[in-house]
Design a protein around this nucleic acid. Structure first.
Length: 547
RNA sequence: GGCCAGUUGGUGAAGUGGCUUAACACACUGCCCUUUCACGGCAGCAUUCACGGAUUCGAAUUCCGUACUGGUCACCA
């Protein structure tokens, strides 16, 4: 009889499960290789949480010589957002997460889009029905919500199970009657579970989690014939020979369902890694990062903010395995690819996403690049977001690279660049086009600066001086004008001096750049030139005059 | 409300019975180095691991209870 019901429900499904299985042979991977996937649903835009999961999956697969693939889980057409798939693809590309097979790329285990696999799911549903393990359920939404209300009132478990599953044992005739009336229906599994039994989820990150067995007759196929997430996940990961499922820990409670579906279908379940959500602290409360409330959660934010994708990857690596950071700091010549991630070290609770920390990682990242690399990486950013500055970059390429190179090849490179944006903001004084503006001098020190010394300085400056010679000249200048030639001398007896050499350097720096914080002054003067310094001194005096 | 998980400094965290007078990193503060700023170095920042009890010669680490936080209970993923 079950066979008849199955044929009645799915007259068009003629391919057998055996035929399907034959198309998905065992993968030819070495022992211990991890086959995993990134399986997003195109219901919005990519956020860091998604990226984090994709990153972990791809690393685990790569470091075990396994397979990482991309599967689009578009089983909910109501929530589907236009352009979402493209955004996913772009994000993976931007953050250098490559996959061996998957959507658009193809592969032997496709199609990699669930909406194109509906017949496969239906074939399995048909099989389950013919084996008496699933059934059509004709309950209306109203009936179900009525049951739920009753269950809530009586404080019972909510759902369709046990005696609530009234359509479990419908006769062939009853089903025929429903179908003749074109009553809509879903396909539910007949849960063999016992709520008093416990099962254990061997989670690779969280350890063993004991959960009650599933008793709910979960929906396998929705009214439109499309599978639910649960059913599609179990079948796809079986057919595609996934060894490890990496997903958010919001899925832990539904694990018993997945396990039971595997049993019903006769599949061997995958191993699971439930990763802790990325969280944010707001008003003292911790909460999961939200796409809507937190712009820094959208993957597209980083590109706009000028945060290099490599730096984000470094941060994600740090979040995934906290020992990564120490390793990376100790191995400046190594990359993420050289590190072996272990799931035992992945965080079990929520992980706070800290922008301040990211900022610091960015600084370290930039400090390890060569000046030319910084230039080359920054150029596309400005071409996209600030064309006028990109033009300046092209025009003064040599000058800018020379500037970026100051104090870079030392043991202690500067860390004043955190984002591509900083390259402009830290270098505006390099370009006359940007410098000659009223607000170039963030503060007007006025009479506190000894203009006379600066003029003397212009006269004695010589481009050919070495840094030591240059410094000695300033020392002499300091002494002859009543300033201490070293800070130490000044500290010994401040009364004797008008100030110390640092004050003079600061004045030069301020006139030259409008800043109090810049790279090495000697090198800066060589790049900008003493003539330009003289002009800026005059410009400054004009501004002071106006105030 | 039921079920599940988590709770170590301002922050992320290491640690799974004695080597912990709790690593490392971020932030902050101070000192040193330095021509300024930065970079870097050093030091400070939890006598204590949510709270209460139990086990033990010994517990952040094991067990029980309480509190708080988060997740989940759809024909959404």
């Amino acid at each position: 009889m079950n066979k008849e019901i199955a044929d009645l429900l799915f007259p068009n499904i003629t391919t057998t499960v055996e035929e399907i299985e034959a198309k998905y042979p065992e993968r030819n991977v070495k022992e211990g290789a991890i086959v995993t996937r990134f399986a997003p649903s195109p219901t919005g835009f990519m956020h860091v949480g998604n990226l984090y999961g994709a990153f972990i999956g791809s690393q685990l697969a790569r470091q075990s010589d396994g397979i990482f693939y991309l599967r689009i889980e578009d089983t909910d057409d109501k929530r589907e957002v236009e352009g979402a798939i493209e955004a996913i693809l772009n994000a993976l590309d931007a953050f250098d997460i490559t996959y061996d097979e998957g959507y658009q790329k193809g592969g032997a285990y496709g199609p990699y889009q669930q909406s194109q696999r509906v017949e496969i799911y239906q074939a399995y549903a048909k099989k389950l029905i013919s084996e008496g393990k699933a059934y059509p359920c004709f309950m209306s939404e109203e009936e179900i919500s009525e049951i739920r209300q009753g269950q809530e009132l009586r404080k019972e478990m909510i759902g369709i199970y046990g005696h609530y599953a009234v359509d479990r044992n419908l006769s062939l005739e009853e089903i025929k009657e429903h179908l003749d009336r074109h009553d809509p229906y879903v396909i539910r599994m007949k849960s063999p579970g016992d709520a008093h039994q416990e099962i254990v989820l061997h989670d690779l990150i969280k350890g063993d989690i004991t959960l009650p067995e599933n008793v709910i007759d979960e929906v396998l196929l929705k009214q439109n014939g499309v599978p639910t997430y649960h059913f599609a996940h179990v079948i796809d990961d079986h057919l595609m020979h996934t060894t490890h499922v990496v997903r958010g820990d919001e899925w832990v409670p539904s694990f018993p369902k997945h396990l039971q579906m595997n049993q019903l279908l006769g599949f061997k379940p995958c191993k699971y890694l439930h990763i802790a959500p990325l969280t944010k602290k707001e008003d003292g409360k911790i909460r999961k990062l939200s796409k809507r409330k937190d712009p820094e959660f959208a993957v597209s934010y980083y590109a706009e903010a000028g945060i290099p994708s490599e730096a984000v990857r470094l941060y994600l690596a740090t979040l995934a395995n906290s020992n990564f950071e120490e390793w990376y700091l100790q191995n400046p010549d190594k990359t993420i690819e050289d590190f072996t991630f272990t799931y035992k070290k992945m965080p079990t609770g929520g992980t706070l996403f800290d922008m301040e920390k990211l900022d610091n990682i960015c600084r370290t990242y930039f400090s390890r690049l060569t000046a030319a690399e910084v230039y080359e990486k920054a150029l596309p950013y400005y071409e996209k977001y600030d064309a006028p500055f990109a033009a300046l970059m092209n025009q003064y390429k040599e000058k800018l690279i020379a500037f970026l190179n100051i104090e870079r090849n030392s043991k202690r490179p500067r860390k004043d660049i955190a984002t591509y944006k900083d390259i402009k903001s830290e270098s505006t004084y390099l370009f006359n086009e940007l410098f000659y503006q009223e607000d170039s001098y963030q503060q007007i020190v006025g009479e506190e600066i000894d203009m006379d010394i600066l003029k003397q300085y212009i006269n004695c400056y010589d481009v050919n001086d070495t840094q030591d010679e240059w410094y000695q000249k300033i020392q002499t200048l300091a002494e002859t004008n009543g300033y201490a030639p070293t800070v130490k001398m000044y500290k010994e007896d401040a009364q004797l001096y008008k100030g110390h050499i640092g004050d003079i350097c600061e004045a030069i720096r301020h006139i030259l750049t409008g800043r109090t914080k810049t790279p090495n002054l000697y090198e800066l003067l060589q790049i900008i030139g003493i003539d330009e310094f003289a002009k800026r001194l005059q410009f400054y005096q004009e501004i002071v005059g106006k105030h």
